[in-house]
Nucleic acid binder design. Structure first.
Length: 351
DNA sequence: AAGTCGGGGGG
DNA sequence: CCCCCAGACTT
């Protein structure tokens, strides 16, 4: 009881005013939880407001096209969340009469809803006494109990979940869960936590033993791979161009991009040109490399280096298109969902 | 159990 | 430059 008492008291005076906390409706709570997966509150908030504006009810989201959902999601990353969000909205609208499941176990069946998110929705919307365990909770509990097992392995994660149940205020799970996460985000931060004014100080094992900065322990995994993307921007005299939708299961699934040749090693210009001509067996009147230095994009475990080639051609013929390709005027490029990497290029060079 | 999936912020 | 963020899903 000490733990929950302290953090909820801390919460009532330090909490941020966030829109999804002012409701018990499952729809906006679900929406916020999906958006905030691996995403900072500050980054997700504008998207949350934008989505509620376009889709006030889950039915409105269900009726939208996936392309529109992806467009609104553009820039938030992890686009499978947007596809699963849309699929789940349709499922709830068409099969569940627009009513969200109201238990953790039933919520867990929804696409894109895992262990954390099902607990979050069940506790926030339906007051189910189930603990949330996210990055914040891993940090707070590993420090408070002095757990030095890696939190991203099953043994450590299981122990954290045990402790999360142990400290959970079963009478006020919604308040407790909000409090412990907010506490992790604002007080028990990854770097430079405010231990000197912490209400848990007296019982925090990590603080007592001076291991706060060492916890939580995580096993590292990253081996950075580089991908070389060579985009071909065809432009005809009417300012039309071709984009194509990424299919398959890789990065940016279902987003649009210019026709591309990908390499795992830095290609020679000859190789790029060869790929270009196999993709477009057409007359090219002039080629210019659009940007002198390539666009370098760093992701968590990957480095993307993108070169853009602008190809001026006499005419784009519809019958040469593949199924997933679209003919667009340059001014229409802003209407289709594209990776941020491309959006930046488009804004700088084509509009 | 290990990989993959984005993009941005902070030290 | 590296780590982290209201994780889930696939292999």
């Amino acid at each position: 009881m000490f733990f929950s008492k302290q953090i909820t008291q801390w919460y009532t005076t330090h909490k941020r005013d966030l829109p999804w906390r002012n409701t018990k409706e499952a729809y906006p709570i679900w929406l916020s939880e999906i958006m905030l997966q691996q995403t900072r509150v500050d980054q997700g908030l504008p998207y949350f407001l934008k989505f509620l504006e376009h889709f006030p009810k889950v039915e409105n989201l269900a009726e939208a096209t996936e392309e529109k959902v992806l467009k609104l999601w553009q820039g938030l990353g992890y686009y499978s969340r947007a596809r699963n969000l849309h699929a789940t909205a349709k499922y709830i609208t068409e099969n569940l009469n627009g009513e969200f499941p109201n238990t953790k176990d039933s919520l867990l069946q929804l696409k894109g809803v895992g262990d954390y998110t099902s607990s979050a929705i069940a506790s926030f919307a339906f007051n189910e006494a189930t603990p949330v365990v996210d990055g914040n909770v891993n940090r707070v509990l590993s420090r408070y109990f002095g757990i030095d097992l890696p939190v991203n392995e099953s043994a450590g994660q299981n122990l954290i979940k045990e402790k999360a149940i142990e400290v959970l205020d079963k009478k006020n799970p919604a308040l407790h869960n909000q409090a412990i996460m907010e506490f992790g985000a604002l007080q028990c931060k990854p770097k430079n936590p405010y231990c000197h004014i912490c209400p848990l100080q007296s019982k925090c094992v990590a603080y007592q033993q001076g291991m706060v900065e060492r916890l939580p322990v995580k096993i590292k995994k990253t081996k950075v791979q580089t991908r070389f993307l060579n985009y071909f921007v065809l432009i005809d005299p009417n300012q039309n161009t071709i984009v194509q939708q990424r299919k398959g299961k890789g990065i940016w699934e279902n987003l649009f991009e210019f026709p591309v040749a990908e390499f795992s090693k830095k290609p020679k210009l000859i190789e790029v040109e060869k790929e270009m001509r196999s993709i477009f067996p057409i007359e090219i009147s002039s080629t210019e490399k659009a940007n002198l230095k390539p666009v370098i994009h760093l992701l968590s475990h990957r480095k993307l280096i993108a070169d853009f080639y602008i190809l001026k051609i006499q005419s784009l013929q519809k019958n040469t298109f593949q199924k997933n390709q679209k003919l667009l005027n340059l001014s229409e490029l802003e209407t289709v969902p594209v990776p941020v990497l491309m959006a930046n290029f488009i804004k700088e060079y084509l509009l």
